[in-house]
Design a binder for these strands. Structure first.
Lengths: 205, 205
DNA sequence: ACTTTGAAAACAAAAAAAGTTTTCAAGATT
DNA sequence: AATCTTGAAAACTTTTTTTGTTTTCAAAGT
């Protein structure tokens, strides 16, 4: 009855690196150095295992968002951090795993879609609204519209055909996108705040 | 009897992006907008198709090497260009496709290995020797040893666990590796030549 | 000595993919 | 206009692979 806590991270790595289809249960057991029996004692079937891996992935992101919510930065700083965490997290989702998810685990694919389109967009939207109350983000900005716009920016960054051929670090592309985005939604006061905080916060893309 | 010339590139893209296992013949036909029948009219089976794709990939590289051989640069410049082409080419080989190749098409995997370990290393070795005759590369350097060393550098650059977490552009990592490598094998004359040519040639990583 | 454990391997059942054939409609040919 | 050809779409069979279960066996603990 071991496996669960330590090995699940290895499973995630393997799934994320090679895809769900290529990584069969036999191969998984071999890589983990355990028997299939042991895996099946902890997880009813492969679907449950995949579910657990992706669930853990989303939960991590959720708690990072929660931690972010608890800190006391201004709305602009939070906004940037949130975006940075999102990009950092989602870049693990390679074309292969997204493809396999979509094809073989459509309910999980939809859950991922829902998570991003509903939960994440909602959090982002509230941040925009808070920014407006703080006078940092312009009133003409429609929070619903720009939060979806941000989600689509994430998609762009992850799509291998959009920016990859530039061979810029993800950080550079990210910073450019955020410069445009933040510059485009802030009031002059917000821009000032942004320029001040920018120097202090160290962003991992 | 169409498909062959245009679509084979699409097939390569799909195989390379999603892996050989995830990209089934049904899926392939769907993506190509043709029927399986048409595919099977041009390729006896999937193995032949995969073989054709990878063969084309290697042939491209071979002819780039040949073109390189025909130009009239000094050995150091050629060496760098050769490395740049190699890196550029091999970065298409994602973990997934290498994994699938190794597991499901072992003979093709071995062909790829052989190509790199024999053909490429041999060409590189001859370049080193030429550099020695030109007085650009030190005599103490053993061409056989350093050509294998270079191959291993390529492997490092491609391995997702080695440099990827740095989030540097591939170009940067490449240039650093080559600085060390070239600096380490050249005579003082060679170094001078290298510094002169470096500015002129524009390297795509 | 006797359990327990779990890897390794053999196994059956199920699913999926490969490869083949049939159907059918749109274009070309006569 | 009638016929032929073509190839996508889909139905189908066969083969392969994978899943999930069971058995075996050896090393560890009791």
């Amino acid at each position: 009855m071991s496996l669960a806590p330590t090995h699940i991270h290895t499973v995630r790595e393997l799934f994320f690196r090679y895809g769900l289809k290529s990584m069969t249960m036999d191969e998984l057991a071999k890589q983990l150095g355990c028997s299939k029996k042991t895996i099946y004692e902890n997880y009813a079937d492969k679907k449950v295992l995949v579910h657990s891996v992706l669930g853990g992935f989303l939960d991590e992101h959720r708690s990072e968002m929660a931690a972010l919510d608890r800190n006391h930065e201004n709305a602009i700083a939070k906004l940037i951090r949130m975006a940075a965490i999102g990009f950092q997290k989602m870049r693990n989702l390679t074309p292969t795993i997204l493809f396999d998810l979509q094809k073989s685990y459509p309910e999980l694919w939809m859950e991922l879609e829902r998570y991003r389109k509903e939960e994440i967009v909602e959090i982002f939207k509230r941040l925009i609204e808070r920014g407006q109350h703080e006078g940092l983000i312009r009133q003409e900005i429609d929070p619903s519209v720009v939060s979806i716009m941000h989600l689509q920016h994430t998609n762009l960054l992850l799509d291998p055909v959009v920016f990859s051929h530039l061979d810029r670090p993800l950080a550079t592309v990210f910073h450019n996108i955020m410069e445009v985005f933040v510059g485009g939604i802030t009031t002059s006061q917000g821009l000032e705040v942004w320029n001040n905080t920018k120097a202090q916060m160290n962003l991992q893309p």
